[in-house]
Amino acid sequence: MPGAYLAAILLSFAGIAVLDVRLRLAFPVAPGRTAAAGALGTAFFLLWDLVGIGAGVFVKGDSALYVGVVLAPHLPLEEPVFLAFLCYLALVSWAGAQRVLGRRASARTQEHAR
């Protein structure tokens, strides 16, 4: 089924965005910084991929799940979308972890104050 992989990435992206907005983790708190960090991370990993492709380390496999659009040799359209999702997921996960750890530290501080 062509496009299934891209659809899965976009659905996952949407799910993380819903969690991000609902819990106010990354984008709602600092949209500019979140967008910049996501863009820089995506650019870094895309450059990494291009170096790997040039070195012959990364190759595009054949799959009926791809849309079929190739941006460069061995670089399907799905790759930069996946890299953007990966960076956004990392940002949201980091913000969530900071919140959880901050609450634990705050609870410990309050407990010691008693």
Score class of each variant (00 low, 15 high):
77 L>K: 02
57 V>H: 13
72 A>R: 11
59 V>Y: 13
53 I>S: 10
65 L>F: 09
47 L>I: 15
87 C>A: 11
88 Y>N: 00
67 V>H: 04
45 F>S: 05
88 Y>L: 00
87 C>H: 06
71 L>W: 10
52 G>D: 05
69 V>A: 12
56 G>D: 10
50 L>I: 11
83 L>Y: 10
54 G>C: 10
87 C>Q: 13
51 V>I: 15
87 C>R: 10
63 S>A: 12
46 L>R: 09
57 V>P: 06
57 V>N: 08
88 Y>M: 00
56 G>I: 10
69 V>W: 13
72 A>Q: 08
51 V>M: 11
45 F>I: 02
54 G>S: 09
46 L>T: 14
74 H>Q: 09
56 G>F: 06
68 G>R: 02
50 L>M: 11
86 L>P: 01
67 V>Q: 10
45 F>Q: 06
88 Y>A: 00
53 I>G: 11
76 P>D: 07
52 G>Q: 08
74 H>W: 03
73 P>D: 08
58 F>Q: 02
69 V>S: 08
69 V>G: 09
75 L>R: 01
54 G>T: 07
81 V>W: 05
68 G>K: 08
83 L>K: 12
72 A>N: 05
47 L>A: 14
74 H>I: 01
70 V>G: 05
59 V>D: 14
52 G>A: 14
51 V>H: 08
56 G>S: 04
47 L>W: 14
52 G>W: 09
86 L>Q: 07
46 L>M: 12
82 F>V: 06
84 A>T: 02
56 G>V: 07
47 L>F: 13
45 F>P: 05
49 D>L: 11
62 D>N: 15
49 D>Q: 10
55 A>H: 13
64 A>C: 02
67 V>C: 08
80 P>F: 03
64 A>T: 05
77 L>V: 01
62 D>K: 15
67 V>K: 03
50 L>A: 04
51 V>S: 13
48 W>T: 12
57 V>I: 15
60 K>H: 10
65 L>I: 06
63 S>M: 05
79 E>M: 00
57 V>E: 07
76 P>V: 06
83 L>H: 07
56 G>L: 07
57 V>Y: 10
83 L>G: 03
79 E>C: 02
59 V>K: 14
59 V>R: 14
60 K>V: 03
79 E>L: 05
46 L>D: 09
83 L>R: 12
55 A>Q: 15
51 V>K: 08
86 L>E: 03
68 G>P: 00
66 Y>L: 12
76 P>Q: 02
78 E>T: 04
58 F>A: 03
63 S>R: 09
81 V>Y: 01
71 L>N: 09
79 E>S: 04
80 P>Q: 02
47 L>K: 10
54 G>A: 06
88 Y>G: 00
72 A>P: 07
47 L>D: 09
86 L>W: 11
50 L>K: 09
51 V>Q: 06
88 Y>F: 00
47 L>C: 11
66 Y>R: 12
78 E>F: 03
85 F>S: 00
70 V>P: 08
62 D>V: 15
72 A>M: 06
69 V>Q: 11
66 Y>S: 04
71 L>G: 06
62 D>T: 15
49 D>P: 04
69 V>R: 09
72 A>I: 02
84 A>Q: 04
67 V>T: 14
77 L>Q: 00
47 L>E: 12
76 P>M: 00
86 L>V: 04
73 P>H: 01
54 G>H: 09
45 F>Y: 15
86 L>D: 00
58 F>M: 04
49 D>N: 15
